[in-house]
Design a protein around this nucleic acid. Structure first.
Lengths: 190, 190
DNA sequence: GAAGATTGAACGGTCAATCTTC
DNA sequence: GAAGATTGACCGTTCAATCTTC
């Protein structure tokens, strides 16, 4: 099929479907993937599907917490006063407003965060980490970092870590251009 | 919080929670992330969450197909006879047996694939791509490849593509070690 | 009317249980 | 009993509609 984007595990899904052989990256007016790109994409897709699954599974097993819930709690924990507006939290946690709202409701139900009104703007809702939520995060952190180390950083050299960051940063800039979410402020790094 | 794994968008979720400053990567008996790792992880998590979302959204909009459905169809299309056992398809598509079964049922309902019995082993169910399914895949491919190019390969040099592949390959090897899915056969690449 | 946020229905994935064939 | 595969219930995400405050 005139497709060309590489499936995971050894097949490919982004190559001219039922592809005739042509010079790399050419077929009609579509710029198909080159062989090197195809092989890379297969592994990229594998990571996109399976790494989040493992992060989630390990976190749920060790801490009764989804990866996204962990992300939300940790983002709040890193912010001054442990309190942040929903909209900003959504950006920092890579979330849609809707998804975040649902999750915060659940976390609030467990007593891990509280909602509060902004004094300066009645439309803005603030989310605050409770002492209990902080404890939960503190308890979950070591195991999670262990997983991240084991699955990612333990197998990468310092140079590769930097390469990985640069590559991901570039991709995110493109994803942001599609203006689904507004571009992220980009604190630190570089 | 003694956490240390970097949230997306500029915050961090994998650093000693309420972290005191210590030499990079040390705090009690947990090996927290170094500053370089933390910054990288923030962007990695961003990609893990937002890239799949965009791939899915673009594919649904242009082709009424989820990214995972595309993946499944394309994997079958690349296999001899356009026919493959469920178990092997699950591995190639990074899927659990259950998820694959549900998806194949949906695809079958739309007439894009067919199920068939194996002649040699009655337990094995084969999935075959129909002519209609092939057409759907062929029609969806150009736009999808366009998205993949735009979001990923257009912003990477040839060297970075190779770096990306190596990094993802290493991570996948680790993810496989956790023996959730059996290790993938690993055709081609290298 | 736009920005910030929430709601509920629909959809898709996960998990545990089940079924069949070896 | 193990391997291959499926099922249904539960849960989380998405999307569109809604609500409130500016």
């Amino acid at each position: 099929v005139c497709s060309s984007a590489g499936a995971a595990g050894g097949s490919d899904y982004a190559r001219p479907v039922a592809g005739r052989s042509r010079p790399d990256g050419e077929c009609g007016d579509v710029r198909w993937l080159t062989e090197a790109e195809r092989l890379a994409w297969i592994d990229v897709v594998g990571v996109l599907i399976r790494l989040p699954y493992r992060l989630d599974a390990d976190l749920r097993r060790t801490s009764q917490l989804s990866h996204f819930e962990y992300l939300v709690l940790s983002v709040i924990s890193e912010v001054p006063e442990h309190e942040v507006p929903m909209t900003r939290l959504a950006v920092l946690a890579n979330s849609s407003p809707s998804r975040l709202s649902h999750v915060v409701s659940r976390l609030e139900g467990r007593g891990w965060v509280q909602r509060a009104e902004s004094v300066t703007d009645g439309r803005v809702k603030l989310v605050r980490l409770t002492e209990l939520g902080f404890e939960v995060l503190r308890a979950a952190a070591p195991a999670h970092v262990g997983t991240v180390r084991e699955l990612v950083f333990d197998v990468l050299s310092a140079a590769e870590v930097e390469q990985f960051r640069v590559i991901c940063r570039r991709i995110l800039d493109r994803v942001d251009s599609g203006s689904e979410w507004p571009p992220v402020p980009d604190r630190g790094g570089q």
